[in-house]
């Protein structure tokens, strides 16, 4: 097709189905238009794609599904800008383009044999879900898995039925929180996500903590993890930046001497603790 070295080369995909999540959030299941499965796509948990809709532009979207499920690739998208608005206008069978997978994901090989503590806030669950499902599909590779997930209210819980399905499993611990519960319908913890730490028994020495959420969440969760005795090289976080090109050239996602799209979006705490604007 194009020049083999063209870093902006796109691949057409179509929508298999869309699954409404909550207001302005939708899960898109995609298939590659060239007929191949996602098996050879090579995506790692925590990586992202550039979604391209001509006329609107490109937007970085994290991949929500693991390569252990190669029949489809899932993107959990919030309707926020021009590209995502266009996606929400599409239906089953609609075709658009992608580039990727891009960036550095979670170090799943390093995490093997360890406990996993996943801490997500709001849409931050989208990238963490790829790691969570990877770990559940390769359950024998990991020790305990603990998921802490916080949203602002009970209406905004993403992947609701998937999270509920964990009730039937005894190989994952889950702790869910909402910041506010005005109608009194929430059966679990009400308060900020850091409150969930009081309810969990953790063993920092053999656990990898992984977090993703709104900007405000990081500082508080990191403080908590350090207090509990997590070493900084056992804390990984996925950061959000305006990753325009995805290949480390356009400069928009720079964080200190790093580029979120190439060096991240997943960073160990040790790599960014010295960069003031990182968190």
């Amino acid at each position: 097709m194009g020049h083999p070295g063209n870093i902006y080369e796109l691949r057409p995909v179509s929508i298999l189905r869309t699954l409404p999540q909550i207001k302005d959030h939708r899960l898109f299941q995609l298939k590659l238009e060239d007929g191949t499965t996602w098996e050879n796509f090579g995506h790692q948990p925590g990586q992202f794609l550039e979604v391209s809709v001509f006329g609107k532009g490109e937007a970085p979207i994290s991949i929500s599904s693991p390569s252990t499920r190669p029949d489809t690739l899932e993107l959990c998208v919030r309707r926020a800008g021009k590209v995502t608005n266009a996606l929400f206008e599409m239906d089953r069978g609609s075709v658009f383009n992608i580039r990727g997978p891009y960036g550095r994901g979670f170090p799943v090989d390093k995490m093997k044999g360890h406990k996993l503590l996943l801490i997500a806030g709001g849409l931050g669950l989208a990238p963490l879900r790829s790691l969570l499902l990877h770990a559940l599909d390769r359950r024998g590779d990991f020790d305990d898995i603990i998921l802490m997930y916080g949203t602002n209210n009970p209406d905004n819980v993403l992947f609701k039925y998937e999270l509920l399905s964990f009730y039937d499993r005894d190989d994952i611990k889950y702790l869910y929180s909402v910041d506010r519960d005005d109608e009194g319908i929430w059966k679990q913890y009400v308060g900020v996500v850091t409150g969930l730490f009081e309810k969990a028994t953790l063993s920092p020495a053999d656990t990898y903590a992984v977090l993703c959420g709104p900007p405000i969440m990081y500082r508080f969760v990191l403080q908590k993890l350090l207090q509990l005795g997590f070493s900084k090289d056992h804390i990984y976080m996925s950061l959000e930046r305006m990753m325009k090109c995805g290949v480390g050239k356009c400069g928009h996602c720079a964080i200190g001497d790093k580029y979120c799209c190439m060096d991240g979006p997943v960073f160990p705490y040790t790599e960014i603790e010295g960069i003031k604007e990182a968190i």
Binding site: F54, G55, K56, G57, E58, K244, C245, K249, C250, G251, H252, A254
Partner: peptide, 24 residues
């Protein structure tokens, strides 16, 4: 060398994708 990437749609489905100098 920072740049922005943008689409210019002259008619539906037609036009150019271009990049232009940008500044931090």
């Amino acid at each position: 060398t920072c740049f922005n990437v943008y689409d210019q749609e002259s008619a539906p489905g037609n036009g150019v994708r271009a990049r232009a100098w940008d500044a931090c």
